[in-house]
Amino acid sequence: MSQSSLSEATARMQVHSAASRFSLVYQPVISIAAGKRSVVAFESLLRINGLGAGEGTVQFITKAESDGSIVAVDRWVLSQVIALTRARPRLSVWLNTSQLSIAHPTFVTDALAAMKAGQVVGQVSFEMTETADADEKILAKRLEDMKVQALTVMLDDVTDGFAKRGLLLSESVAGCKLSRQTTVALLESERVRAEVQQLVKVCRRLGKRIVLEGIETTDELRLAMDLDITLCQGYYFCKPASPANLLQYPQMRPVG
Rank of each mutant, 00 (worst) to 15 (best):
K116P: 00
L167G: 04
A111F: 02
R204F: 08
V202P: 10
G175C: 02
V153L: 03
C203I: 09
T218Y: 02
V124S: 03
I215K: 08
A140S: 15
L91R: 09
F237V: 04
V77S: 00
S31V: 07
V81N: 15
T10S: 12
E127N: 11
A11D: 12
C238W: 08
K201L: 15
L155G: 05
V202Y: 10
D228K: 12
S92H: 15
D133C: 11
V124K: 04
V29R: 09
V173A: 03
L24D: 03
A19G: 01
F42G: 01
P240H: 05
V108A: 15
G161A: 14
G166S: 07
K141L: 07
V202D: 14
V108N: 05
L227P: 04
I82S: 12
Y249D: 05
K177A: 08
A18W: 07
V25Q: 14
S189A: 01
G54M: 11
A174M: 10
G52L: 02
Y26G: 01
D67E: 03
K116T: 12
C232V: 12
T10M: 08
V15K: 02
A87E: 14
L227D: 06
V211E: 02
E213K: 10
L223R: 11
S92W: 13
E136V: 13
P89A: 03
A87R: 14
M13R: 14
N96E: 03
G122S: 07
A41N: 03
K177H: 01
N96Y: 04
E213I: 01
L199K: 08
G175M: 08
S5M: 14
M146R: 06
S69N: 07
Q198L: 15
L223W: 08
Q181E: 14
